[in-house]
């Protein structure tokens, strides 16, 4: 059986304006200049020369400082961003749990939103019909099914979104910081759901700043430093290296 995710020499470049922000506007010549951008532009590689592969059933945590390119990496694997160099190959369906409540419409009811979000993530209507009660029950929003989602608290919204997304049956899961939202009991509930998913033999790529989650859920870690892979090793080693680096900088 081949690898579930193969990332080969991946690179993505962003452009900065004079104040060091990402450029919002660009000139026509850059659009039609293909890939060899003029050197006078301040371009930087958010990620470069990233290579790794992940076997089916493996759970890998990605660590690194803010802005090191972790989320960009996950987006490239999910296919919601496209690389400038290299390639991402994914064998099997991908369930992307990136921005959880993206897709919610405040003025629609919870019921409508469940169907909407499910469809966006690739469910057929009958599949949602089957799971509807489970979704509502897990999210603890019974009694609010026909309430507009804009009246929900952020915690309720997060629970509802998570409840829909965890119904995904895709063999490969990409999880970005979703465990960081909500109160403690919700976080515990989320991690136990993810543990169950992993027990099913699914492959997972997780971005998190929470060491406990990383240690409990992942067996292997990838440390991204200065837009490159600084370490790819068992999760404990990677976390040690990462915290040693953080200490030194302080």
């Amino acid at each position: 059986m081949g690898d579930a995710i193969i990332v080969d020499d991946l690179g993505i470049q962003f452009h900065l304006n004079r104040r060091g922000h990402r450029r919002r506007k660009r000139q026509l010549r850059h659009v039609f200049a293909r890939r060899d951008y003029r050197s006078d532009e301040r371009a930087f590689w958010a990620l470069r020369n990233i290579s790794f592969s992940i076997a089916p059933g493996e759970a890998v945590g990605i660590v690194g400082r803010n802005g090191s390119g972790k989320s960009t990496l996950l987006r490239l694997v999910a296919g919601v961003m496209l690389p400038d160099e290299g390639s991402v190959q994914v064998n099997g369906g991908v369930g992307a749990m990136l921005g959880l409540s993206a897709g919610f419409v405040g003025t629609l009811t919870a019921r409508d939103n469940i169907y909407l979000l499910s469809a966006l993530h690739g469910f057929r209507r009958e599949q949602v019909d089957e799971r509807f009660d489970d979704i509502v029950k897990w999210a603890e929003v019974e009694g609010f099914v026909d309430t507009q989602v804009k009246h929900f608290s952020s915690g309720m919204r997060a629970r509802l979104a998570f409840s829909v997304v965890t119904q995904l049956e895709e063999p490969i899961l990409l999880v970005d910081e979703v465990l960081a939202v909500g109160d403690r009991s919700f976080r515990r509930k989320c991690s136990s759901v993810i543990e169950n998913m992993l027990a099913d033999g699914r492959t997972m790529l997780l971005v998190s700043h929470n060491e406990n989650d990383l240690r409990r859920l992942c067996s292997r870690g990838i440390y991204i430093r200065d837009h490159r892979v600084a370490a790819d090793a068992p999760i404990d080693e990677v976390l040690e290296l990462y915290s040693a680096d953080s200490e030194r900088e302080r």
């Binding site: 987006r75 999910a78 296919g79 919601v80 961003m81 991908v94 992307a96 990136l98 921005g99 959880l100 993206a102 897709g103 966006l120 993530h121």
Partner: peptide, 9 residues
């Protein structure tokens, strides 16, 4: 933008 960058469609 939020949907485009987080849902694979």
């Amino acid at each position: 933008a939020r949907m485009v960058t987080s849902i694979s469609l």
